[in-house]
Amino acid sequence: MEYLNLFIKSIFVDNMIFAFFLGMCSFLAVSKNVKTAAGLGLAVIFVLGITLPLNYLLYEYILKPGALAWLNPSYASVDLSFLSYIVFIATIATFTQIVEMAVEKFAPGLYNSLGIFLPLIAVNCAILGGSLFMKERAYETLGEAFTFGLGSGVGWFLAIVCMAAIREKLAYSKIPAGLKGLGISFIITGLMGIAFMSFMGIQL
């Protein structure tokens, strides 16, 4: 039940885009049609769902203050947490690289539709943001980290697909010249954010 609560919360209340603006760059750049948006969204769910537990394990057993105590009790005073940025980003970059190669080798069809987005994901702030939030909010179990990763990914997917659908329709509407393209996308995202705020405070 706690997991379900966390899952719903990370999709709607703590939505990566509407509440924290993470992954905004690719959100704006790739939301021009629903199909590619869904492809990128799926890739983000996948990468978030895997890298978050990975980074959780790294943080819990290597980086946290006193985490090295399982190796040798005399290491209990070692604090490597200042290294967490570099370790997290290295995990993410390596993982996306591996996934890209694996997908290219074993599923060329999927690679053609998804492949181009995988390198982009390494520098998607939503992924690194997920890992940093996990550290900041101190999730306690591997399950929680995994649920949070999956939930944030689904929330991101939902946001980008909605946005792409709206932008497809928007092509036919009359917009002041200065607002066309970027300006109106910002304002729409803001309005969607206000709509998502109605989920605030939901508890299961």
């Binding site: 607002l179 803001g190 309005l191 206000i194």
Partner: peptide
């Protein structure tokens, strides 16, 4: 609240593009 940042930024973009017309998108 977070959404207002986006709306304000949208307005900044609007003002800039109204002045520098060469930046407007088709």
């Amino acid at each position: 609240l977070p959404p207002m940042a986006l709306i304000l930024l949208g307005c900044v973009v609007w003002i800039q593009r109204s002045i520098q017309k060469e930046l407007q998108e088709k």
